[in-house]
Nucleic acid binder design. Structure first.
Lengths: 222, 222
DNA sequence: CAGTATTTTACGGAAATCCATAATCCTAAA
DNA sequence: TTTAGGATTATGGATTTCCGTAAAATACTG
């Protein structure tokens, strides 16, 4: 069984539940952090002491506190940990069910398993832990397994996201162009932004800009 | 202490945590339901058997399953339970932090306490239980206590919501007017809809329609 | 019933967006 | 160096939204 496990989860009641699971699996050396920053520091410290963790179970969304944080989300945490310790096994354990985000976690953040918090997720979590222990297979909860099949042949890039975020913040297209020009962002003409918007609307089957922002918000893209 | 408690919470890991809390408080007669429908039936059955529950702890958002449900959200459950058994104490225990929704839970659904799932919510939950046990006071987590102070002097009515929902679904203003005319919804002129939108934008301090939909989506109004 | 207030509807011009086409710039291969 | 292809930018007109004003309809009051 895994020797040393760390959990990143902010909700204390949820933490209690997860700890119960680990106890059931006879994992006795586990620690938990309510903050991503804290989790990252612990993982780094463990490496330095030559006693690295071999499993990270991380939530994705974390409540913001009064205290300032440098790592605000589980996505970031996972990505940074993967860079720091390429061989650690990582399980994302979250209620997030937007296929776009789940796919990105496997593709970009390099998680080994995604377990959807749900009605029977404890069994799934145990299953994921066992699979990761014995092999290099990946695990994903069946309800969201289809996320991996989705082929985004059209790549939504950073600038698309920027445009969408600005729109949802109430910035007009003209203002966005101004901002892009002032920030030296490459395509900053009226028509370039318009063309991108048009492609996005096409891709997401949105009738208009309001609809587009609504859809992408729902999908968790912005 | 409360004699008979029922928990409505879909996430199994969270359920484990809450049960731990009740155990700490020496509440031994508790049941939990993963479905709102199930919780409602149990509460009704208990009344019929003259052994009613005296406390309901309910989550707000529930995962949808393969099975069809009649009560889909905690909001509805709470409302129906309040009608059925006016004297039961109800605690909403949720990550929901939109003041609009929280205020509505106190005003319309008649909850006795709102505990925000968070970093130290277990202590708050215990506190809420104790307050409800000994008095008719209400309890609300400090982080969101400001929700109750907010006075919506401007009332957002049903038609406003309808307009916003249509907009976020990609319907143009002209189409909305058509729909209203076909459904015999009273103010159905171009300028009436425009005026309402203008007031909404004013109220929510939105720069434009995209922004307005984005804001109201974030607030959980639509 | 007359008069006032409020709501709803109508209208019109300004602004923003939508969308198609054409011109320009850039890069890489011939 | 030339040239083809793609990406970016420019232009202009159709459509939609925005916003103020005014007329019409309805409600309310003495």
């Amino acid at each position: 069984m895994f020797k040393k496990v760390i959990i990143a989860e902010d909700l204390d009641a949820m933490n209690l539940g997860i700890q119960q699971v680990l106890k059931d699996l006879n994992i006795n050396n586990s620690q938990h952090s309510k903050y991503c920053d804290d989790a990252f520091l612990k993982i780094r410290a463990a490496i330095n002491q030559n006693e690295p963790y071999d499993l990270l179970i991380s939530d994705l969304s974390f409540k913001t506190d009064h205290r300032a944080v440098t790592i605000a989300s589980g996505d970031e945490l996972v990505q940074k940990v993967r860079e720091l310790q390429p061989d650690i096994k990582i399980i994302a354990y979250s209620v997030e069910d937007k296929s776009f985000r789940i796919k990105s976690l496997f593709d970009n953040a390099g998680i080994n398993a995604f377990v959807l918090k749900g009605l029977n997720s404890i069994e799934e979590l145990k299953k994921a832990i066992n699979i990761l222990l014995n092999s290099d297979q990946k695990f994903i909860s069946p309800e969201v397994a289809s996320a991996l099949q989705e082929k985004n042949n059209y790549e939504i890039d950073d600038i698309d996201i920027k445009i969408l975020k600005h729109l949802s913040a109430g910035t007009s297209q003209d203002e966005i162009i101004e901002i892009f020009k002032n920030s030296d962002i490459k395509p900053n003409s009226k028509s370039a932004v318009e063309k991108r918007l048009s492609k996005l609307k096409d891709f997401f089957k949105a009738n208009n800009t309001v609809h587009l922002v609504s859809i992408t918000k729902d999908m968790g893209i912005i």
